[in-house]
């Protein structure tokens, strides 16, 4: 990294929070309202950083997948089934 690149990074760092902070704010934003400063820090970072934009999309995909699976269970679409043996074992244990 040459001298000018270092100066450039130092200037950028005065205005834009690092990826670690921005991605933590992205997580918090999913569940709670950010303060104005936090929201601004996150937005500015996302404008500048393609990696964190990808992270945002990819984490949203994982959240959607988990939420869809939760809905499928509520609609009785099951990935796993208790075997006849397991069912009998449970029934035996709760028999009076």
């Amino acid at each position: 990294m040459n001298f000018f690149q270092k100066i450039y990074i130092k200037i950028i760092k005065c205005f834009i929070v690092p990826c670690e902070k921005a991605s933590l704010l992205m997580t918090k934003h999913e569940f709670e309202k950010l303060t104005l400063k936090e929201a601004l820090d996150m937005r500015l970072h996302l404008m500048k950083c393609k990696y964190c934009r990808w992270l945002l999309d990819e984490e949203a995909l994982l959240s959607d997948t988990i939420k869809n699976h939760k809905k499928q269970i509520e609609c009785n679409q099951f990935l796993h089934t208790l075997s006849a043996e397991q069912i009998e074992k449970i029934k035996k244990n709760i028999a009076p």
Binding site: I73, H80, I87, I94
Partner: peptide, 17 residues
């Protein structure tokens, strides 16, 4: 014991998830 037949798989999948 009818609960196990009716809701066993629901609870099992709920717990696994």
């Amino acid at each position: 014991s009818t609960w196990v037949d009716k809701y066993g798989n629901y609870l099992y999948n709920y717990a696994i998830s």
